[in-house]
Simulated scan of single mutants.
Amino acid sequence: MNKRKDLTARNFPSAKDEARALQPRPDYDGPSSAYKLAFGDSEFLLRDELRPVRMQLELLKPELIQTEQGIKSTIVMFGSARIKPREDALKTLATAQAKGDAAEIKRAEAQLAMSHFYEEARRFAAIVTRASAERADPIYIVTGGGPGIMEAGNRGAYEVGGKSIGLNIVLPHEQHPNPYITPELCFRFHYFAMRKMHFLMRSVALVCFPGGFGTLDELFETMTLIQTGKCRRRPILMFGREFWTRLIDFDLLIETGMISAGDEQLFHFVETAEEAWALLESTYDLHAMPASGDGV
Protein backbone atom coordinates (compact mmCIF):
# COMPACT_ATOMS: atom_id res chain seq x y z
CA MET A 1 0.00 0.00 0.00
CA ASN A 2 1.47 3.34 -1.08
CA LYS A 3 0.34 5.80 1.60
CA ARG A 4 2.14 8.71 -0.03
CA LYS A 5 0.25 8.13 -3.28
CA ASP A 6 -3.02 8.27 -1.33
CA LEU A 7 -2.31 11.94 -0.64
CA THR A 8 -2.63 12.84 -4.31
CA ALA A 9 -5.21 10.27 -5.40
CA ARG A 10 -8.31 11.55 -7.22
CA ASN A 11 -11.35 12.05 -5.02
CA PHE A 12 -13.68 11.34 -7.94
CA PRO A 13 -13.35 9.15 -11.01
CA SER A 14 -12.55 11.04 -14.21
CA ALA A 15 -15.16 11.53 -16.91
CA LYS A 16 -12.97 9.46 -19.22
CA ASP A 17 -12.88 6.57 -16.73
CA GLU A 18 -16.62 6.63 -16.21
CA ALA A 19 -17.38 6.82 -19.93
CA ARG A 20 -15.15 3.84 -20.65
CA ALA A 21 -16.64 1.80 -17.81
CA LEU A 22 -20.27 2.23 -18.91
CA GLN A 23 -22.17 -0.99 -19.47
CA PRO A 24 -24.74 -1.31 -22.28
CA ARG A 25 -28.33 -0.64 -21.24
CA PRO A 26 -30.50 -2.11 -24.02
CA ASP A 27 -33.68 -0.57 -22.66
CA TYR A 28 -32.23 2.97 -22.66
CA ASP A 29 -29.48 3.09 -25.30
CA GLY A 30 -31.80 3.61 -28.26
CA PRO A 31 -31.63 6.70 -30.51
CA SER A 32 -34.53 8.47 -28.77
CA SER A 33 -33.27 7.87 -25.24
CA ALA A 34 -31.99 10.74 -23.09
CA TYR A 35 -29.96 8.35 -20.95
CA LYS A 36 -26.54 8.98 -22.57
CA LEU A 37 -23.95 11.08 -20.78
CA ALA A 38 -24.27 14.61 -22.16
CA PHE A 39 -20.62 14.84 -23.26
CA GLY A 40 -20.85 11.45 -24.99
CA ASP A 41 -24.07 12.21 -26.83
CA SER A 42 -23.15 13.42 -30.31
CA GLU A 43 -26.75 14.16 -31.28
CA PHE A 44 -27.09 16.41 -28.25
CA LEU A 45 -23.77 18.18 -28.94
CA LEU A 46 -24.87 18.87 -32.54
CA ARG A 47 -28.06 20.71 -31.57
CA ASP A 48 -28.26 24.35 -32.71
CA GLU A 49 -28.45 25.51 -29.10
CA LEU A 50 -25.03 23.94 -28.43
CA ARG A 51 -23.22 26.11 -30.98
CA PRO A 52 -21.40 28.12 -28.25
CA VAL A 53 -20.12 24.86 -26.74
CA ARG A 54 -18.90 23.59 -30.13
CA MET A 55 -17.10 26.87 -30.78
CA GLN A 56 -15.42 26.60 -27.40
CA LEU A 57 -14.31 23.06 -28.23
CA GLU A 58 -12.81 24.25 -31.53
CA LEU A 59 -10.94 26.90 -29.59
CA LEU A 60 -9.73 24.50 -26.90
CA LYS A 61 -8.70 21.38 -28.82
CA PRO A 62 -6.02 22.97 -31.06
CA GLU A 63 -4.90 25.23 -28.21
CA LEU A 64 -4.35 22.38 -25.76
CA ILE A 65 -2.67 20.09 -28.27
CA GLN A 66 -0.30 22.79 -29.55
CA THR A 67 0.60 23.71 -25.98
CA GLU A 68 1.32 20.05 -25.21
CA GLN A 69 3.46 19.84 -28.36
CA GLY A 70 5.48 22.90 -27.31
CA ILE A 71 4.28 25.08 -30.22
CA LYS A 72 4.91 28.70 -29.23
CA SER A 73 5.70 30.57 -32.46
CA THR A 74 4.43 30.03 -35.99
CA ILE A 75 4.73 31.53 -39.44
CA VAL A 76 1.41 31.40 -41.29
CA MET A 77 1.44 30.70 -45.01
CA PHE A 78 -1.64 31.68 -47.01
CA GLY A 79 -2.21 31.23 -50.73
CA SER A 80 -4.25 29.58 -53.43
CA ALA A 81 -5.21 25.91 -53.32
CA ARG A 82 -5.12 26.01 -57.14
CA ILE A 83 -1.40 26.70 -57.61
CA LYS A 84 0.24 23.47 -58.76
CA PRO A 85 3.81 22.20 -58.50
CA ARG A 86 5.71 22.73 -61.73
CA GLU A 87 5.68 19.06 -62.76
CA ASP A 88 1.88 18.90 -62.46
CA ALA A 89 1.46 22.20 -64.33
CA LEU A 90 3.63 20.88 -67.17
CA LYS A 91 1.45 17.75 -67.45
CA THR A 92 -1.69 19.89 -67.54
CA LEU A 93 -0.20 22.02 -70.32
CA ALA A 94 0.83 18.95 -72.33
CA THR A 95 -2.70 17.54 -72.06
CA ALA A 96 -4.21 20.85 -73.18
CA GLN A 97 -1.82 21.10 -76.13
CA ALA A 98 -2.70 17.56 -77.20
CA LYS A 99 -6.39 18.52 -77.28
CA GLY A 100 -5.65 21.69 -79.23
CA ASP A 101 -8.15 23.76 -77.22
CA ALA A 102 -6.85 27.36 -77.28
CA ALA A 103 -8.73 28.46 -74.14
CA GLU A 104 -7.55 25.41 -72.19
CA ILE A 105 -3.98 25.96 -73.37
CA LYS A 106 -4.11 29.58 -72.19
CA ARG A 107 -5.33 28.52 -68.73
CA ALA A 108 -2.65 25.82 -68.53
CA GLU A 109 0.05 28.32 -69.48
CA ALA A 110 -1.14 30.64 -66.72
CA GLN A 111 -1.00 27.74 -64.25
CA LEU A 112 2.54 26.96 -65.32
CA ALA A 113 3.57 30.59 -64.86
CA MET A 114 2.07 30.62 -61.36
CA SER A 115 3.72 27.32 -60.38
CA HIS A 116 6.93 29.10 -59.41
CA PHE A 117 5.07 30.36 -56.33
CA TYR A 118 4.59 26.73 -55.24
CA GLU A 119 8.33 26.21 -55.47
CA GLU A 120 9.11 29.42 -53.55
CA ALA A 121 6.62 28.47 -50.83
CA ARG A 122 8.16 25.03 -50.55
CA ARG A 123 11.70 26.47 -50.32
CA PHE A 124 10.65 29.14 -47.81
CA ALA A 125 9.09 26.57 -45.48
CA ALA A 126 12.23 24.44 -45.73
CA ILE A 127 14.46 27.43 -44.89
CA VAL A 128 12.35 28.35 -41.85
CA THR A 129 12.16 24.78 -40.58
CA ARG A 130 15.86 24.06 -41.08
CA ALA A 131 16.90 27.30 -39.35
CA SER A 132 14.42 26.76 -36.52
CA ALA A 133 15.76 23.29 -35.78
CA GLU A 134 18.83 24.99 -34.32
CA ARG A 135 16.86 27.38 -32.10
CA ALA A 136 15.83 26.96 -28.48
CA ASP A 137 12.27 27.96 -29.44
CA PRO A 138 11.56 26.74 -32.98
CA ILE A 139 9.25 28.55 -35.36
CA TYR A 140 6.75 26.22 -37.02
CA ILE A 141 5.04 26.54 -40.39
CA VAL A 142 1.24 26.58 -40.29
CA THR A 143 -1.03 26.39 -43.35
CA GLY A 144 -4.68 25.80 -44.13
CA GLY A 145 -3.82 22.14 -44.64
CA GLY A 146 -5.10 21.75 -48.20
CA PRO A 147 -3.48 21.57 -51.66
CA GLY A 148 -1.60 24.23 -53.61
CA ILE A 149 0.41 26.75 -51.61
CA MET A 150 -0.76 25.08 -48.40
CA GLU A 151 0.69 21.78 -49.52
CA ALA A 152 3.92 23.49 -50.55
CA GLY A 153 4.36 24.94 -47.06
CA ASN A 154 3.80 21.64 -45.26
CA ARG A 155 5.89 19.83 -47.86
CA GLY A 156 8.88 22.11 -47.43
CA ALA A 157 8.89 21.51 -43.68
CA TYR A 158 8.39 17.76 -44.10
CA GLU A 159 11.24 17.39 -46.59
CA VAL A 160 13.80 18.76 -44.12
CA GLY A 161 12.54 16.58 -41.28
CA GLY A 162 10.49 19.16 -39.39
CA LYS A 163 7.00 19.37 -37.99
CA SER A 164 4.29 21.61 -39.44
CA ILE A 165 0.67 22.40 -38.71
CA GLY A 166 -2.43 22.14 -40.90
CA LEU A 167 -5.72 23.84 -40.04
CA ASN A 168 -8.25 22.20 -42.35
CA ILE A 169 -11.82 23.41 -42.83
CA VAL A 170 -14.92 21.34 -43.64
CA LEU A 171 -16.29 22.52 -47.02
CA PRO A 172 -19.29 21.44 -49.14
CA HIS A 173 -16.79 20.03 -51.64
CA GLU A 174 -14.65 17.80 -49.45
CA GLN A 175 -11.13 19.05 -48.79
CA HIS A 176 -8.59 16.40 -47.90
CA PRO A 177 -5.55 17.32 -45.82
CA ASN A 178 -2.35 17.22 -47.83
CA PRO A 179 -0.01 14.30 -46.96
CA TYR A 180 2.82 16.43 -45.53
CA ILE A 181 1.19 17.72 -42.32
CA THR A 182 2.49 16.32 -39.03
CA PRO A 183 -0.39 13.96 -38.06
CA GLU A 184 -0.64 15.09 -34.43
CA LEU A 185 -0.83 18.70 -35.67
CA CYS A 186 -3.47 18.18 -38.36
CA PHE A 187 -6.70 19.83 -37.18
CA ARG A 188 -10.17 20.06 -38.70
CA PHE A 189 -12.55 22.99 -38.21
CA HIS A 190 -16.23 23.62 -38.79
CA TYR A 191 -16.12 27.34 -37.94
CA PHE A 192 -14.08 29.65 -40.16
CA ALA A 193 -13.84 32.17 -37.31
CA MET A 194 -12.16 29.69 -34.95
CA ARG A 195 -9.79 28.58 -37.68
CA LYS A 196 -8.73 32.13 -38.49
CA MET A 197 -8.25 32.87 -34.79
CA HIS A 198 -5.86 29.92 -34.49
CA PHE A 199 -3.91 31.11 -37.53
CA LEU A 200 -3.01 34.28 -35.65
CA MET A 201 -2.78 33.19 -32.01
CA ARG A 202 0.85 32.02 -32.22
CA SER A 203 1.95 33.74 -35.42
CA VAL A 204 5.07 35.89 -35.59
CA ALA A 205 4.62 36.57 -39.31
CA LEU A 206 2.15 36.14 -42.16
CA VAL A 207 3.47 35.09 -45.56
CA CYS A 208 0.89 35.56 -48.29
CA PHE A 209 1.13 34.10 -51.79
CA PRO A 210 -1.25 34.83 -54.68
CA GLY A 211 -4.74 33.52 -54.07
CA GLY A 212 -8.45 34.15 -54.41
CA PHE A 213 -11.30 35.09 -52.10
CA GLY A 214 -10.13 32.95 -49.18
CA THR A 215 -6.59 34.27 -49.31
CA LEU A 216 -7.83 37.87 -49.56
CA ASP A 217 -10.17 37.32 -46.62
CA GLU A 218 -7.34 36.02 -44.43
CA LEU A 219 -4.92 38.74 -45.57
CA PHE A 220 -7.28 41.66 -45.04
CA GLU A 221 -8.56 40.41 -41.70
CA THR A 222 -4.96 40.29 -40.46
CA MET A 223 -4.23 43.78 -41.84
CA THR A 224 -7.40 45.13 -40.22
CA LEU A 225 -6.54 43.66 -36.82
CA ILE A 226 -3.07 45.20 -36.96
CA GLN A 227 -4.26 48.54 -38.38
CA THR A 228 -6.87 48.91 -35.64
CA GLY A 229 -4.54 47.81 -32.86
CA LYS A 230 -6.56 44.70 -32.03
CA CYS A 231 -3.44 42.55 -32.31
CA ARG A 232 0.27 43.25 -32.15
CA ARG A 233 2.12 44.30 -35.26
CA ARG A 234 3.93 41.52 -37.09
CA PRO A 235 5.51 41.25 -40.55
CA ILE A 236 3.18 40.60 -43.47
CA LEU A 237 5.15 39.43 -46.50
CA MET A 238 3.40 39.35 -49.88
CA PHE A 239 5.06 37.22 -52.55
CA GLY A 240 4.84 38.63 -56.06
CA ARG A 241 4.68 42.43 -56.33
CA GLU A 242 3.31 42.31 -59.88
CA PHE A 243 0.38 40.11 -58.88
CA TRP A 244 -0.60 42.11 -55.80
CA THR A 245 -0.23 45.58 -57.33
CA ARG A 246 -2.38 44.56 -60.30
CA LEU A 247 -4.98 43.08 -57.97
CA ILE A 248 -5.11 45.85 -55.36
CA ASP A 249 -4.50 49.55 -56.05
CA PHE A 250 -2.97 50.56 -52.73
CA ASP A 251 -2.11 54.03 -54.07
CA LEU A 252 -5.79 54.64 -54.86
CA LEU A 253 -6.74 53.68 -51.31
CA ILE A 254 -4.32 56.30 -49.96
CA GLU A 255 -5.24 58.99 -52.51
CA THR A 256 -8.95 58.66 -51.73
CA GLY A 257 -8.39 58.57 -47.97
CA MET A 258 -9.71 55.04 -47.62
CA ILE A 259 -6.54 54.14 -45.71
CA SER A 260 -4.02 56.44 -44.05
CA ALA A 261 -0.61 57.25 -45.46
CA GLY A 262 1.66 54.80 -43.70
CA ASP A 263 -0.81 51.92 -43.76
CA GLU A 264 1.01 50.63 -46.83
CA GLN A 265 3.93 49.95 -44.48
CA LEU A 266 1.92 47.17 -42.83
CA PHE A 267 3.26 44.80 -45.50
CA HIS A 268 6.34 44.13 -47.62
CA PHE A 269 6.61 42.73 -51.13
CA VAL A 270 9.09 39.90 -51.61
CA GLU A 271 9.99 37.71 -54.58
CA THR A 272 12.11 34.85 -53.24
CA ALA A 273 12.25 32.55 -50.24
CA GLU A 274 15.68 33.89 -49.31
CA GLU A 275 14.50 37.49 -49.42
CA ALA A 276 11.54 36.67 -47.19
CA TRP A 277 13.65 34.84 -44.61
CA ALA A 278 16.29 37.61 -44.59
CA LEU A 279 13.58 40.16 -43.79
CA LEU A 280 12.28 38.05 -40.91
CA GLU A 281 15.81 37.47 -39.60
CA SER A 282 16.36 41.22 -39.57
CA THR A 283 12.97 42.01 -38.00
CA TYR A 284 13.42 39.61 -35.09
CA ASP A 285 17.24 39.66 -34.90
CA LEU A 286 17.17 35.89 -35.29
CA HIS A 287 20.95 35.73 -35.68
CA ALA A 288 21.19 36.70 -32.02
CA MET A 289 18.69 34.09 -30.79
CA PRO A 290 20.24 31.29 -28.71
CA ALA A 291 20.63 27.94 -30.38
CA SER A 292 19.09 24.86 -28.83
CA GLY A 293 20.94 24.01 -25.62
CA ASP A 294 22.59 27.44 -25.30
CA GLY A 295 20.08 28.67 -22.75
CA VAL A 296 17.94 31.80 -22.95
Rank of each mutant, 00 (worst) to 15 (best):
P62H: 07
P172N: 12
T67H: 14
E159Y: 07
A152S: 00
E119F: 02
A157H: 04
K72S: 12
A136D: 14
A133N: 08
F78H: 06
G161C: 07
A125S: 15
V53I: 13
A136N: 13
Q69V: 01
L57I: 15
L167W: 09
A113W: 06
I127R: 12
D48T: 03
P85A: 04
I65P: 01
I71Y: 11
I83W: 03
V142F: 11
L167D: 05
V128P: 02
A81I: 01
R107D: 12
A126S: 14
G166P: 03
I75M: 15
E151P: 05
E134M: 10
S80K: 06
A157C: 05
A125R: 04
H173P: 00
Q97I: 13
D48R: 10
A98S: 13
G153H: 10
L60N: 05
R130S: 12
N168T: 02
Y140W: 14
S115R: 09
A96I: 13
I141R: 02
E87Q: 09
D101F: 11
K91Y: 03
F78P: 00
T95C: 04
P172E: 10
P179K: 09
E159L: 04
M150S: 02
M114Y: 08
G148S: 07
M77L: 15
A133M: 09
H176D: 06
L171N: 11
S132M: 06
E63A: 14
V76F: 10
H176P: 00
T95W: 08
K61E: 12
Q56Y: 13
A133P: 02
T74I: 10
E109H: 10
A96T: 10
Q97S: 14
S164Q: 04
M114V: 01
I83C: 03
D101S: 11
H176L: 11
